[in-house]
Amino acid sequence: MTVQFGYPEDREARSAARVRALEALLIEKGVITGATVDKVLGHFETDMTPLNGAKIVARAWTDPEFAERLVKDTPAAVAELDLPIGMDGAEGEHLQAVANTPGVHNLVICTLCSCFPWPVLGLPPYWYKDPTFRARAAREPRVVLKETGLDLDPSVELRVWDSSGHSRWFVIPQRPAGTDGMTEQELAALVTTESMIGIAEVPSPAA
């Protein structure tokens, strides 16, 4: 994170005290309850995690017809799976999957803010929200991917999706080599958040 600016030494302690004060006052005044924030956080800790996306990807790898439906009508295909309630809830109202192929790699960004498919991938990692990533991934995505360890072949078309509208995009990465015969559950365990945003591929378990 940037260190170009000066910050007070008690920067984090001040923010921590201010947010606690704000929460306390909102509870006292009846805006929220003493349990609201914990319940919101619990929703993301237990229900809306990248595990949902991993299960969707694993199903797409093992069922080509599902993979086809998933790209064509993502919400309907996601609804076929046994996932927590709320996959079409907040920030999942208009999910849209894009599939990587040997000739096409997809990358999801949001240059205006931090739009992210919460129900599928959980909450966005810090780097996704960082202005430097958002600025650079729009103009020099190949360089950015290379910095994170993905050296994309020049013949591969790189499609960068800027989430400026209603859709919440996520990537179906390619199934890695060396996974023949693995169960859907075993495959899901291989899938990373990074691969479903598109800054990484799913590594082969043999590697």
Binding site: T2, T132, F133, E194
Partner: peptide, 22 residues
């Protein structure tokens, strides 16, 4: 802008969770 800060955590300080929840 220089290199990207590849910080994989969602919240880099505990207090950040509370403002997200609010």
């Amino acid at each position: 802008l220089g290199p990207v800060a590849y910080e994989p955590r969602v919240f880099v300080e505990d207090w950040e969770q509370r403002i997200f929840g609010i």
